[in-house]
Design a protein around this nucleic acid. Structure first.
Length: 215
DNA sequence: GACCAGGCACATC
DNA sequence: GATGTGCATGGT
């Protein structure tokens, strides 16, 4: 079967099994950007605690976070883990966001996706997944987000070689699916849902996995 | 106590 | 270019 058809079939089966995932779970674009950095190699539940702390202290805005001493920021985001390095990364991003775009999402959206992706990647602490998450979920640009779940699911089911890198994994989706923000949004969210529910541990319990006999 | 989580940068070879 | 390591909390 053609890759594009199969990828779409996988999507449809996941959607049927899980329904819409309503991503990204955040109140606005800036909160998505902060969450994208905080969730690096971290359980989302822990990120929620960190974001709740920022909200409770009424500092979840670009200017307020930019003004805040790094040490204080680190203390607030402590539940998200790696809090020192993440405080630094947030600071780097905030500086970029304020200096280059005046913390204005509309100005950022006006930039072409490819150029903006490179700009984001130039920020220390923003890698490919974080950049694509910001592009897709904060700025509504069609970038397919690849994460550990994506690679694990598709390699474990022999759709991709085990050590396929980010770019090649992303190509699989971007070259075989209709380039569409809503589709990319839902597809990635569904893969995360599948990863969490079924293909997580070393001994994956895929007995009732919605992708059984399909991949 | 072990293992895992929606990565990334940096050192070293 | 490939491989290894530090970063850290909280849930199971």
């Amino acid at each position: 079967m053609a890759k594009s058809k199969k990828l779409l079939q996988i999507y449809q089966r996941l959607y049927k099994a899980f329904g819409p995932q309503h991503w990204w779970p955040a109140e606005g674009p800036f909160e998505v950007m902060v969450g994208a950095i905080l969730t690096q190699n971290t359980n989302w539940q822990n990120v929620e605690k960190a974001i709740a702390a920022l909200k409770k202290n009424k500092v979840l805005s670009p200017k307020k976070l930019n003004r805040m001493p790094q040490k204080k920021l680190a203390k607030l985001i402590r539940p998200a883990g790696y809090f020192n390095i993440k405080a630094k990364r947030l600071k780097n991003f905030l500086k970029f966001y304020l200096q280059n775009y005046g913390a204005d999402v509309r100005k950022m959206r006006a930039v072409r996706a490819h150029a903006l992706r490179n700009e984001l990647l130039s920020v220390n602490g923003v890698g490919e997944e974080t950049a694509d998450s910001i592009l897709l979920y904060a700025l509504n640009k069609p970038a397919f987000v690849v994460d550990a779940y994506t690679k694990r699911i598709f390699s474990r089911h022999r759709f991709l070689p085990k050590d396929t890198d980010y770019q090649d994994t992303q190509k699989l989706f971007m070259q075989n699916l209709k380039v569409n923000v809503q589709l990319f949004n839902e597809y990635h969210a569904l893969l995360v849902r599948l990863g969490k529910d079924f293909c997580l541990k070393r001994n994956p319990k895929c007995g009732t996995c919605p992708l059984e006999k399909l991949l």
